[in-house]
Design a protein around this nucleic acid. Structure first.
Length: 773
DNA sequence: CAGTGAGCGAGCTTCCGCTTGACTT
């Protein structure tokens, strides 16, 4: 029997708070939402004023049963879900699901997990804010209506199993449009003039690097300028020194953590979140899904102490950062180490690295500004109005730079600014070398996962808990792919003036090399243009922001939630019906030309299983031939020649062991089929060129590898039992049933008796049921 | 893992946001 039951959202939080509250309080977690719209149908009764049909989420049945029991035994139930729209709805759903009586239910909220914050919260409970709950309900119903009406439209018009939604469809649009910008980008070049000068000083001469204050559009102009400089003299005209300062970045939110972990550690968004979750569960960091840059007073005090002790008092400067993010709800603190005294932690490499990044960012955010001195030296040229400019930067006081500097997404930083020697007006400079470099304008950058998250956050689309899942959804649907692309070589001209002689040289540089960037697929592009054509309003980058304004009005009690939904739904539903009627099936079909042998037309289009080529018309007497596109080929750029090559498979190479050997392409790329066995072709082997001896070699290699996978084989009566070395360790298989081998046993030394014993003691796990893609 | 692409029709897919395990071969 317990007096008080406190319900929070996360188990790790429950553990910490339990320690603060003492024995009169039982603290449990509900693990997020316990109820959601029914999944079997639309889950919204449109005819009845959009009444939501809530059901207890199947995976939460156990939690709800347990909480119901505890609540019945308690005097008072404290609902301590997060203080934001979703948190308020969670509390409301708990009231409904646990059948809580109002008289012994209290709603409390806190933004920090500290003893004082929780005690204060307990002292000031409030009723559940029904307006806020209604705002969440409107958000939920709108997302369901959009997602569950748009997706089936795509199944009908384009391809089964596709999806669309308020967040994911805009994420795809960003990537498709960036690719179009790149495709349409016209690179122009200009000549940049840089020079090394020699400054004579009392001790020894020093080199000063400077750049001309203008660029030349043509080579002729650049050469003319260099010629003019052969006989020129150079002197310092002006020295301008001014102080500057740099301030640290705020502590991490989910989005900035994902960006920095991507830039500094090369982590994918999903990997960052997985490691952060584990750090949180081990008690090393505060909650990792947050949009707040705020630190608790306790954290600030810890920071002051830690910085003072480690670097000295002059390095301490605590700050309160405020969020600039659209729609931020700030239910939690920023992401920070629980104890700033721990510079590092025990754990594997990725945990250590992410933790240290969080520690540095948190500490730096509370350190003094860096004080710099920026110097600009203007260098005159006799006989010319143009000037060379040399820039230098000296750090007078490093401040937060001692610990951490935020990285930037810009790929090329223009010239590191170093130190300049002391100079004064009238100093003479001797030219050592002057170079005119042809510089091309850079195409827009492609998104990494983390850069896409940054962009979505700027647009106010999505929440900290959904950034990583959204990124993975659009990849799972094959709207976008994350890939490396090799880039191409480009020539550029460099003209040098040295010792009065001008020389010209053509050099090459690599451009367009991409690592782990997001590219749209043919399907992504096609779905995007379909949605843009018929649902421009949903695809608008400001759609979320404008509905969020209305959700805010609902939260303030100035707007009725289902009338807002009604105003949105009916015009939207009309768009759906009109599109159903007006639009035929969309396949992005292109006619490539005629097959030179038969004269039949060749098309490329999106089919039921993805991009494909077709030879012949479907209403002709002879059935058309079909073939899938290869990886890396695209609907937009495929040529007739490439299409004709695709029809050359399947190809029979000859006979081996009395059976034909056939090369073909399947869903996972080119393969060899022989005796109903499949053998993948290595990447380097061209399926159009491979011959029989080479194919046999590939098959034998696979057979050898497979034989090493089987650790042991037994025949027990009719049963054929194998011990196999699988991806997740060794296991036993028999009659398509798998059995785990206890960790204490060495799989290689098992006897038939051992195996039979394990099989009788453990229950089999069925291999994964085949899922359709 | 994998070989398909007519048309018929059954039965399936799908959203966003809050939170963890269970499970995989």
């Amino acid at each position: 029997m317990t007096k008080n039951l406190v319900i929070v959202e996360s188990p790790a939080k429950a553990k910490t708070i339990g320690g603060f509250l003492g024995k009169d309080y039982t603290v449990r977690s509900c693990m997020g939402h316990v109820a959601d719209l029914s999944k079997k149908d639309l889950g919204v009764d449109i005819a009845d004023g959009f009444t939501p049909k809530y059901v207890i989420s199947p995976e939460k049945k156990k939690v709800v049963a347990e909480l119901t029991k505890l609540a019945r035994e308690s005097e008072t139930v404290w609902l301590a879900s997060d203080e934001d729209r979703e948190g308020e709805a969670i509390s409301w759903h708990l009231v409904e699901a646990l059948n809580l009586e109002e008289s012994r239910t209290r709603r409390i909220a806190f933004h920090e997990i500290t003893k004082t914050a929780i005690q204060e919260a307990i002292e000031s409970p409030r009723p559940i804010d029904r307006n806020l709950v209604n705002a969440q309900q409107a958000r939920r119903v709108l997302d369901r209506l959009v997602g569950f009406e748009l997706s089936p439209l795509l199944w009908k018009k384009i391809k089964p199993s596709l999806s669309a939604g308020r967040v994911q469809s805009v994420a795809v649009r960003l990537i498709v449009e960036r690719e179009e910008e790149i495709k349409n980008f016209q690179s122009v070049s200009a000549y940049r003039i840089v020079a090394d000068f020699l400054l004579k000083t009392d001790t020894r001469p020093v080199t000063v690097k400077a750049e001309l204050n203008r660029r030349f559009n043509t080579k002729e102009e650049a050469v003319a300028f260099l010629k003019q400089c052969i006989a020129a003299q150079y002197g310092v005209e002006e020295v301008d020194t001014r102080p500057a300062k740099k301030s640290p970045a705020p502590p991490f939110t989910t989005s900035t953590l994902q960006q920095e972990a991507s830039r500094k550690l090369g982590f994918s968004v999903a990997n960052t979140m997985r490691v952060a979750q584990e750090l949180y569960e081990s008690g090393f960091i505060t909650y990792m899904r947050t949009d707040s840059v705020n630190l608790s007073d306790m954290a600030l005090a810890m920071a002051r102490k830690e910085i003072g002790a480690a670097f000295g008092e002059e390095y301490v400067k605590t700050r309160k950062f405020s969020t600039r993010t659209k729609g931020a709800q700030e239910a939690h603190e920023a992401i920070r180490p629980t104890y700033l005294t721990n510079r590092t932690i025990e754990g594997d490499k990725s945990h250590k690295r992410l933790y240290e990044l969080i520690w540095k960012r948190t500490i730096a955010s509370q350190m003094a500004d860096a004080e710099l001195e920026k110097t600009t030296v203007t260098i005159g040229i006799t006989g010319s109005a143009d000037k060379f400019v040399a820039r230098g930067e000296v750090v007078r006081f490093d401040g937060f730079l001692k610990v951490y500097m935020e990285s930037s997404d810009e790929e090329e930083q223009n010239g590191e600014e170093g130190m300049l020697p002391p100079m004064s007006t009238g100093d003479r400079l001797d030219l050592q070398v002057m170079t005119a470099q042809q510089k091309f304008t850079q195409q827009p950058y492609r998104y990494t996962e983390a850069m896409l998250v940054k962009k979505l956050e700027e647009l106010g689309i999505g929440r900290p808990s959904t950034y990583a899942p959204t990124i993975s959804t659009i990849q799972k649907r094959e709207y976008v792919v994350k890939e490396d692309r090799p880039g191409t070589m480009r020539n550029f001209t460099e003209i040098t003036l040295k010792k009065g002689i001008i020389t010209e040289e053509v050099k090459t540089e690599k451009v367009g090399y991409e690592k782990s960037k997001l590219f749209p697929t043919d399907i992504g592009t096609l779905v995007n243009s379909f949605l843009l054509k018929h649902f421009e309003n949903i695809m608008d980058y400001n759609f979320t922001a404008s509905v969020e304004e209305e959700f805010d009005e609902i939260a303030e009690g100035r707007l009725v939630w289902n009338s807002m939904i009604s105003d949105f739904y009916w015009p939207f539903h009309k768009q759906i019906e009109e599109t159903l009627e007006s639009s035929g099936k969309v396949s992005g079909e292109r006619h490539l030309g005629a097959d030179p042998k038969t004269g039949l037309p060749v098309y490329v289009k999106i089919g039921r299983y993805g991009p494909m080529v077709q030879m012949g018309d479907s209403d002709a007497d002879e059935k058309p031939k079909f073939a899938s596109l290869n990886k890396g080929q695209s609907l937009e750029t495929l040529t007739l020649e490439e299409a004709l090559d695709l029809f050359k498979l399947p190809r029979t190479l000859g006979e081996f062991e009395d059976s034909p050997v056939v090369v073909a392409t399947g869903r996972f790329g080119p393969y060899i089929r022989h005796h109903s066995q499949f053998y993948s072709l290595p990447k380097a082997v061209d399926p159009l060129a491979v011959d029989l001896p080479q194919a046999i070699e590939i098959m034998e290699a696979k057979r050898k590898a497979d034989s090493q996978k089987i650790l042991a084989e037994f025949n027990d009566g009719d049963r054929h039992i194998q011990v196999i070395n699988g991806r997740f360790g060794a296991y036993i298989t028999c009659n398509k049933e798998n059995y785990k081998i206890p960790k204490s046993r060495d799989a290689r030394s098992l006897t038939l008796e051992d195996v039979k014993k394990i099989m009788s003691e453990t229950s089999p796990t069925k291999p994964k049921s085949k899922k359709k893609k």
